[in-house]
Design a protein around this nucleic acid. Structure first.
Length: 420
RNA sequence: GCGGCUGUGGUGAAGUUGGUUAACACACUGGAUUGUGGCUCCAGCAUUCGAGAGUUCGAGUCUCUUCAGCCGCCCCA
C-alpha cells in the first residue's frame, strides 16, 4: 500500500521550489513595471461562471471538475479570466478604478485531461486582464508584457502568431458565411466539426483533424468579411507591434479555444524541440462582451494566460538556471551533552540576522563537520563542555580554515565585524 | 477520450532460452581517527523487482488486471 499524488498532479519539492519562487518574482517585477496589480479570486466558483451558455469549447464542455454540494454546483476554475471579470463586476470596480483596470493573477487551474509533459490536471497559470479601454495599442502593450516575461526567463525560441476575429458585425457575417459554406459538405467533416457548424463554425478552421480537408482549406476567409473598422483596428495593432520591434506572423486560421474572443487574438509558441506537442506558452485575446455578460456595463477587455510549468520546462531547456541556495552563515557544532547550549547559541545568531543551523544530534565531531560542509557554512562554531565552562566558543572560517577562540558574548559582534 | 512505449534500492542502472544469493556505481549511515571536515580504507544499506492475481516444481523474467509516467492524437497554458 502506498500513496501517491492523483494523476496529473505533482509535488514541488524543496529542490524545485527555488525556480518557482524565481519565476514568481520575475512575474511580479514585470507586472510592477507595467503597473499591473495582483487580484486573487477563489479556486472554485459557481459552475455558471465558467459554463456560459452557447460555449462550445472542449475546456468547458468536457474538462471541468464540477461537484455538487447540496443543491449548489461548483467548478474548480479551468482558467482565470472568468473569475477576474466576475470579481470586476461583483465589486463594481468599473465605478471605482482608473481605466484601464489592470490585473494579474497567478495560481492553480484544473482541467480533466490526459496528462503529458507540459500538460497536467492541476497546473499553474499566470495571466493578466486589462479592462475598460479598447485600444489597439493596449493590445500590443499586453502582448509585450507577456513577451517580456518569457524573455526574462531566458527563453528566446518563440514565435508570435496573431489574428483578428473582427467586431460583432464582422464576426456574425463570417459565421453565417461559414455555416452556409460548410452545411453542404457536412459529411466530409469530423464529428466535432459537425457540432461546431451550429455552435462555433470558426473553430472548424483550426481543427487538427480536418486540417487537410480541401473543404476546410477552401473555406471563405475571415479577412474577406471584416468591416473597415475591424480592419483598421487590426492594422493599428500590427503597427504598434512593429513600433516596439516585436516580430509576429499573421495567421488567419488562428481562432483559439475560448468562445468569448473578439478582435485581436494571439498565441506565443515555443520553437524549441523540448516543448514537444505542448508548445503553446501563452495565448489570449480581446473580449467585448464578458464584462456585460457578468452583469456590468458593456466594456471591452484583453488578457492572456501563461502556463508556468511550460515556461519552466523551456527555461531549463534553454539553459536558464535558478539561483542556488548559498548555504548557511553559521553552523553550530556541539561536543558532548551540550545541545541546549548549541541551540541557544544558534538562536542568538539568528536573532542577530544571520542564518544558522544547529547540530542537535550529539554525533561524532567528524560527522558534524560533514554536515557543516553540506550546509555550505561560512563559519563553524564549535562548543564543547570546556568552552561552556570557560564562557568561550571556537569559530572557524571555512574558507581560510583558520580558527580562533573568542568570548561567547562577543560572538555576534565578531560575526558582524567579519561582515558575512 | 483514442493509439503506443516504459515502470528493478535514496539515485543511475545490470539482470543470459523462467533456475534458486538481484551485479556494479553514486548517495547515505557507522568505524579506522572517542575535540576538528571535504582524501583513503573497511563495514552496513532492495526478504524484493510499480501494485494485484494467475501459469509453473520454480517468475524480475510468461499471461491477465490495475496504477503511474512518457510519446503521438485531441485539447490548450
Amino acid at each position: 500500500m502506498s500513496y501517491q499524488t492523483p494523476r496529473g498532479t505533482y509535488d514541488i519539492l524543496p529542490d524545485e521550489s527555488g525556480k518557482w519562487q524565481e519565476l514568481e518574482q520575475i512575474i511580479r517585477d514585470q507586472c510592477r513595471l507595467y503597473r499591473y496589480k495582483e487580484i486573487r479570486t477563489p479556486y472554485f466558483e459557481d459552475t455558471s461562471v465558467f459554463a456560459r451558455k452557447n460555449d462550445s469549447s472542449d475546456m468547458v464542455n468536457k474538462e471541468m471538475y464540477t461537484f455538487t454540494m447540496g443543491t449548489d454546483s461548483y467548478t474548480l476554475r479551468p482558467e482565470g479570466t472568468a473569475g477576474v471579470i466576475r470579481a470586476f463586476d461583483q465589486h463594481k470596480l468599473y465605478g471605482s478604478m482608473e481605466m484601464p483596470a489592470r490585473f494579474y493573477y497567478m495560481g492553480a487551474m484544473f482541467r480533466h485531461e490526459r496528462p503529458q509533459k507540459g500538460r497536467q490536471r492541476q497546473f499553474t497559470q499566470f495571466g493578466v486582464e486589462n479592462i475598460g479601454v479598447k485600444s489597439p495599442e493596449i493590445d500590443a502593450e499586453t502582448i509585450a508584457l507577456g513577451i517580456d516575461i518569457v524573455k526574462a526567463m531566458g527563453i528566446s525560441s518563440i514565435k508570435v502568431s496573431i489574428n483578428t476575429l473582427g467586431d460583432d458585425e464582422s464576426r456574425q457575417a463570417y459565421r453565417d458565411a461559414l455555416k452556409a459554406y460548410f452545411e453542404p459538405h457536412i459529411d466530409t467533416l469530423c464529428a466535432d466539426c459537425r457540432r461546431r457548424i451550429v455552435q462555433n463554425p470558426l473553430r472548424i478552421l483550426d481543427c487538427k483533424v480536418d486540417h487537410d480537408n480541401p473543404v476546410v482549406k477552401d473555406a471563405p476567409r475571415l479577412s474577406d468579411y471584416l468591416n473597415e473598422e475591424s480592419k483598421a483596428y487590426f492594422e493599428r495593432v500590427l503597427a504598434a507591434l512593429d513600433a516596439m520591434g516585436i516580430a509576429y506572423e499573421v495567421d488567419d486560421r488562428l481562432v483559439r479555444g475560448l468562445d468569448y474572443y473578439t478582435h485581436t487574438v494571439f498565441e506565443v509558441i515555443s520553437t524549441h524541440p523540448e516543448s514537444g506537442s505542448q508548445a503553446t506558452i501563452f495565448g489570449g485575446g480581446r473580449y467585448d462582451h464578458l464584462v456585460d455578460y457578468f452583469g456590468g456595463p458593456q466594456m471591452s477587455g484583453i488578457g492572456f494566460a501563461i502556463g508556468m510549468e511550460r515556461l519552466l520546462i523551456l527555461a531549463g531547456a534553454e539553459g536558464h538556471r535558478a539561483p542556488e541556495d548559498d548555504g548557511t552563515d553559521v553552523y553550530v557544532i556541539g561536543l558532548g551533552d551540550v545541545s541546549a547550549e548549541v541551540l541557544k547559541t544558534a538562536e542568538e545568531i539568528r536573532h542577530a540576522g544571520f542564518t544558522a543551523e544547529a547540530n542537535l544530534m550529539q554525533r561524532s565531531l567528524k560527522s558534524q563537520f560533514k554536515s557543516a560542509d553540506r550546509s555550505r557554512a561560512s563559519y563553524i562554531v564549535i562548543m564543547g563542555e570546556d568552552e561552556i565552562r570557560n564562557g568561550t566558543v571556537n569559530v572557524k572560517n571555512t574558507k581560510t580554515k583558520s580558527q580562533e577562540t573568542i568570548a561567547r558574548n562577543q560572538l555576534i559582534d565578531k560575526l558582524k565585524e567579519w561582515n558575512i
